[in-house]
């Protein structure tokens, strides 16, 4: 399953919150990826996520595949919201 988010934080998906999201993702066994402008990276990899240089206003897609995909996606949505990276209805799941 896949969900779209819009990055609203003016600093983009920057280092500290990115780490939190990556850590949250790492707690799940599902395969989790982040897609941005056609490039897809492993959401459990801090280098992967940071390498995309995602700025404010970017549209990102989080894809989850595996046994705990639903929980994982909810947890990531919450983490994105709690870290202030994405606001708005995106994260209400």
């Amino acid at each position: 399953m896949e969900k779209k988010f819009i990055v609203t934080d003016e600093a983009g998906l920057h280092a500290r919150p990115a780490t939190k999201v990556v850590n949250a993702a790492s707690r799940y066994s599902s395969e989790l990826t982040l897609k941005y402008k056609g490039r897809e990276v492993n959401l459990k990899s801090i280098m992967g996520v940071m390498s995309l240089g995602i700025g404010q206003g970017s549209e990102i897609f989080i894809n989850a595949k595996g046994e705990d995909e639903e929980e994982a996606l909810v947890a990531i949505a919450h983490e994105l919201r709690d870290q202030g990276i994405c606001t708005g209805p995106d994260t209400n799941i």
Partner: peptide
Amino acid sequence: KSPKLIQKYME
């Protein structure tokens, strides 16, 4: 090649 932002870094 490496994406520019992470060139020369490793985690």
